[in-house]
Each structure stands twice: as C-alpha cells, then as structure tokens.
Computed example of a mutant assay.
Amino acid sequence: MTQTPAQALQASSGYGQTRSWPAHLRLRLEADSSPAGGKALLEGKTLLEGKTLLEGKTRLKGLDFAGPLRIQRPFYPEGGRCHLYLLHPPGGLVSGDRLAIEVAAEPGSQVLLTTPSAGKIYGRDSAGVVQGQQVLLRAGEGAELEWLPQETIVYRGANGVLDTRIELAEGARFIGWDLVCLGRPAGEQWFEQGHLTQRLQLHRAGRLLFNERLCLEGGDWLHRDRVGLNGGCVFGTLMAAGTGLDDALIGELREALPGPDFTLTERLGVLLVRYLGTDMNICRDGMWRAWGLIRPAVLGRPAVIPRIWLT
C-alpha cells in the first residue's frame, strides 16, 4: 500500500503506527560445576573457606541483549545465590517501546532478580501505539527463582501491555510478584483514561496452574465496580510455588496481612497473596512482609532485602 506524504514523514521521523523501539535481554544462569560447589549443592550443605561462603555458586553463563536493557554485575550477598539488578536506562516506556526479558535458571541454580526503581508506562502518543513488556521465566529441576521487580506505574493515557509467563520444572521453586499503580495518586493524576492489558501465567511441568488476564480501560465499570477494582488504583499479586505452603504458613500470613486490602488463596500448589487498594506504600510493605514469611518456608532461607531497595 502506498504511503501518503504525511505517513511517510511520520515513519521517517519515528512517529505513527509503525513507531517501534524494541529491546531484549536474555539471561542464562547455571549452578557452579566445580568440585566444591557441585558437592555442596548435591549434599545441600555450605562450605566455609576463610570468610567466603560457597553454596553451589550460581553464575551468569549466558547474556544476550539489544536496545536499552542491561544488568548490573552479579551480586552475592547470600553466598552462592546470585542477585541480579535489571536496568532500563530510559526509565520508562513510551509509545512503540517493546521490552522482552527472558531468564533461564538452569537445574540447581539459585537466583533473585529485581529492579533499582519503579517501572513507568507513559501516556501514549497521538497514534495510540502500544507500549509494553513481555517476561518469560524458566526454572529447571531443583532451581530456585525469585522475580521481585519494583512496581510499575501506568500513567494516565497509557496504552500498556504487561505479560509475564513462568515455566517451572517439577522440582523447581518460585516466588515472584507483579505490583501496579494506576496513575499518580500522590499528585492527583488519576487513571481516568488509558488502557492496560495484563496477563500472568504459571506452568508446572507443562501444566497450566494459574492464568489471569486483565483488560482495563481507565474509568470503566471494571475499574469502578466492586466486582472489579472497586475504584482502587493500586493492585498486586505475589505468587509462590514449591514446598512448605502449608496451613501454618497461611495462618501466619493472615495474621501479618489483615484484610480487607490483602487476601490469600492456595490452589494446585500455588499460593497467591493479593492487594487491592489506593496506597503503594501499604502494598509494597505488605508484600515485603509476606515474602519474609514465605521465603523461609519455600526456600529454607531468611529474607535478605536487596540493598538496592533501600537506596
């Protein structure tokens, strides 16, 4: 089809329906195969060598990226467990931005991924071009994977898509969350217009255990009504899958996270902690508290706050 002069000008200047700035980041993490690290991993023990703790150290073995997606160097505040901070230097998504993040935690690896600050989805351009992020997380047999990004702020007028898919082997363990703030309530900039599509999926050994999709127009009935978000502008979901999700843990969580803003459910081996309200500080603090209780039960280790959260 022949472009009009106006369409050709838009395309050449980076605007219009064809506007696009894709970026991808692919990570592959493996457990240390050295004799000391491998032995510690197989025996479930830790070895002390001077002041260095070896625990089947997880190493970044694969890194592929294009566009504005990076990571900081790996950190090891917990011995062999690898902490990675994902960076998006522009600081937010404008129309046409498409981020694709793929993480493969190989069998026996242990990794925590987070971000240094909130993600942002800005208002769309006059052409209404979609902007969004797609995340694919894979954890092999015996792997421990934590996906704990800071919240995503969806600005008024955005046309955002958030898609997260988790694929776990039979013996893998996972804790992750997705926290969203609609608009900027502190500045009284409400999400009365705009669009957000969000999908969360969790698979275990090829079986779909959790599947949720939200398709929201700012200010529509789903946003306002009690059967939807009840006028709330902040919502979050924490997912945990693995051993240790028993009645005792659920009881502790219910005591620590009183309703009605927080709710808990467990089905098919997946524990969900949800928040719906108007305050991201309450949501974030509650999710940190929940993580502090879930992590020892599922992963057998205390919660170690990533230092980037405190800066």
Rank of each mutant, 00 (worst) to 15 (best):
K39Y: 14
T115A: 08
V154M: 07
N211Q: 14
T46G: 12
Q193N: 11
R98T: 12
R284I: 07
A143Y: 02
L229P: 08
V161E: 11
F262E: 06
E102D: 13
Q134E: 14
N159L: 03
G194I: 03
M280T: 15
T18D: 13
P185E: 02
R224N: 11
A36T: 07
P5F: 03
L272S: 13
G259L: 06
M280P: 02
D125W: 07
M280K: 02
P260V: 06
L276A: 12
V273G: 03
Y155T: 03
Q7M: 12
P302A: 07
R73V: 01
P302C: 02
R213P: 02
L137H: 05
I121D: 08
G183A: 11
A248F: 07
G292Q: 10
W288D: 08
G219F: 12
E255A: 15
V227L: 15
P35G: 04
P89Y: 04
K120C: 10
H83F: 13
E78N: 12
N230T: 08
V270E: 11
P149D: 06
V129C: 12
R274N: 04
R138W: 11
G123M: 07
L69G: 05
R124W: 00
L148K: 10
W221K: 10
D178Y: 04
E188M: 13
L214I: 15
G269P: 10
R213S: 15
L214S: 04
L25H: 03
R226V: 10
I166T: 13
G232M: 05
G171R: 14
V298W: 01
G157A: 07
T311D: 06
V304G: 03
T4E: 07
G218P: 05
R204G: 04
A11S: 13
R254D: 07
A31D: 01
V111G: 02
P306Q: 05
V154P: 04
T197N: 11
R274Y: 00
L182F: 13
G176C: 12
C283E: 05
S95Q: 04
G16I: 07
C283K: 02
T311K: 10
Q133S: 14
Q17P: 15
D163M: 09
L222C: 06
L299V: 02
S12T: 12
L293Q: 08
L257M: 10
G56M: 02
N159T: 08
L264G: 05
I153W: 09
C82Q: 00
A139V: 02
R301S: 07
D220K: 05
G91M: 14
T18H: 13
F65W: 14
R184N: 03
D225N: 14
P35N: 04
T152E: 07
P149K: 05
C283Y: 00
R98P: 03
H83G: 00
G50S: 11
E30Q: 14
P90R: 01
G194T: 01
H83Y: 10
A40F: 01
R98S: 13
C215Q: 14
L41I: 01
I294D: 08
A169N: 07
V129Y: 04
P89L: 03
R267A: 15
L196I: 11
L249W: 11
N159H: 15
I308Q: 09
E106S: 14
Q198D: 01
F191H: 06
R173V: 09
G56V: 01
T311R: 12
A23T: 01
N230D: 14
